[in-house]
Structure formats: structure tokens, C-alpha cells
């Protein structure tokens, strides 16, 4: 139980305002410390400065897309091992394999899951248990 007391920090990088709002709402209510960014540039900056426990990353974004940000992140000593979950509406296998190649722990297609599923998966990655 003590584990749960220490809240985890999640960085959500998402350009769609509505979706970001929904995700922030859900993870906040699931006792996460939530950081949010609207594009890759902001996301990378936050990730490298705040070292969140996990990053939820969209792919199609203005300024810098998710995969570019991921590559940059992997160049960082901390970032190389930071767990990243891709959350996107791109379902094509090319992007998936590209992401897996760079190094991600999960690849989630937004429309295929409920918000609670996303929270569940993130918790599982973090070893938090349901």
C-alpha cells in the first residue's frame, strides 16, 4: 500500500485539446502527477527536465512528431531508458514497427481502447498493479 502513496509522474504529449483534457482528467483522478505537452518540442523539453516515470506519446503532432521526439529522447542518458507508451490513432504497421525499433513499451491505438484501459496498461508497465 505504501507504494501507492508515492504517486507516479506521467507526461502526456498530445496535440488534440479534447483528448489531452480527457487523458489529464483520467490520469489525475487515477492519482498520477500529470505533465502535459501539445507537441514534440514541448514534450521533449518537459521529459528531459522533469524525468517523468512514464511518457504517453502521440505520433502526429505539429512542430515535432512523436517518433522524432522519441529518437531525440533516446539520445539522452536518462531518456534512453525512460518507458514510453505510444498512444496514437495511426494503426499502420509501418509506424508501429518503426516505434518498436526505436524502443517503446506499448503501442496503443486510441479509438480501440477505453480511457480506463490506457490507465490499466500504464499501471502495468509501471508495475503498479490494479
Amino acid at each position: 500500500m505504501s507504494k501507492e502513496n508515492k504517486s507516479k509522474t506521467i507526461l502526456i504529449v498530445e496535440d488534440d485539446g479534447s483528448m489531452l483534457e480527457a487523458l489529464v482528467e483520467k490520469f489525475s483522478s487515477s492519482k498520477f502527477d500529470v505533465l502535459s505537452a501539445r507537441n514534440g518540442v514541448e514534450g521533449l523539453e518537459l521529459a528531459l527536465s522533469k524525468h517523468p516515470d512514464i511518457i504517453l506519446l502521440d505520433i502526429i503532432m505539429p512542430k515535432m512528431d512523436g517518433l522524432s521526439m522519441l529518437r531525440k529522447l533516446k539520445e539522452d542518458r536518462w531518456g534512453a531508458f525512460a518507458p514510453v507508451v505510444i498512444l496514437t490513432n495511426l494503426s499502420d504497421s509501418q509506424k508501429l514497427s518503426e516505434a518498436l525499433e526505436i524502443g517503446v513499451v506499448e503501442y496503443i491505438v486510441k479509438a480501440e481502447v477505453k480511457l480506463s484501459d490506457i490507465v490499466f496498461k500504464v499501471k502495468r508497465v509501471l508495475g503498479m498493479g490494479a
Partner: peptide
């Protein structure tokens, strides 16, 4: 898919 996901999540 984006609006669909939005609809679904809200």
C-alpha cells in the same frame, strides 16, 4: 479515429 476516440472517451 480522433473524433471517434474523443466521443468514446467522453
Amino acid at each position: 479515429l480522433t473524433p471517434l476516440a474523443n466521443i468514446r472517451w467522453y
